[in-house]
């Protein structure tokens, strides 16, 4: 959590706070990846490539509950909530609209925490394959995780057969978000 004190904060402080939030969050994705069965059996370069391509997407899934579509607010990791209007002043309008849209669609699926975690694993190993050395190993891992996710969801909801396809349709949404926004600048204060 990064202490940012509220409505009287400057845009600069909000931007710094936002940027600082990413560092611990990225480290947590690395730890999460190490816990995915089979991930550490991939070659190290492939692990690094998947993490570089997929981390933002995993974070987008993880933090989708921080976007309140009804109130049009975003809650940062320090618990501070900002209205969309304030964040637009940081030049993040298009990004936020796309994130709200994604969060609403994913939220409407009503996933349980274990389903969400397994979906995040699928997201990570489904990331862009540029630079991957052992494509077959990554594809096998992805297939296994997708099978596990399908099994988990359909066992729990045997009468609902549209949920899994709808969930998979979120993967291209995440790639679009990633491609549109990976070149956004973060600002870190030099003390």
């Amino acid at each position: 959590a990064w202490p940012v004190s509220g409505a009287e904060c400057t845009s600069q402080q909000i931007w710094e706070s936002f940027s600082q939030c990413f560092t611990p969050a990225v480290k947590e994705v690395v730890e999460f990846a190490k816990g995915i069965p089979g991930f550490q059996e991939l070659g190290q370069q492939d692990q690094v490539m998947l993490l570089k391509s997929g981390t933002f997407q995993v974070l987008m899934v993880r933090f989708c509950t921080l976007f309140n579509a009804e109130e049009r607010t975003v809650t940062f990791l320090n618990g501070q909530t900002y209205p969309l209007s304030t964040l637009r002043a940081l030049g993040m309008g298009t990004l936020l609209d796309a994130m709200f849209d994604f969060s609403e669609k994913l939220g409407s699926l009503g996933l349980e925490p274990d389903e969400m975690a397994l979906f995040m694993a699928v997201v990570l190993v489904s990331a862009d394959r540029s630079g991957i050395l052992d494509m077959q190993a990554v594809e096998q891992l992805q297939e296994g995780l997708i099978r596990a996710l399908r099994s988990l969801i359909t066992r729990r909801r045997p009468d609902e057969n549209t949920l899994f396809p709808k969930l998979l349709l979120r993967l291209p949404d995440l790639r679009t978000l990633n491609n549109m926004h990976s070149d956004k600048l973060l600002a870190f204060r030099i003390d």
Partner: peptide, 25 residues
């Protein structure tokens, strides 16, 4: 006046990941 360094989101993520793997070598 405060000074800042700027980094793209992608570069920031790459940097953290590279550091983490280097630390654990």
């Amino acid at each position: 006046p405060k000074t800042h360094r700027f980094m793209t989101l992608a570069d920031h993520i790459s940097h953290i990941i590279t550091q983490d793997f280097a630390r654990n070598q």
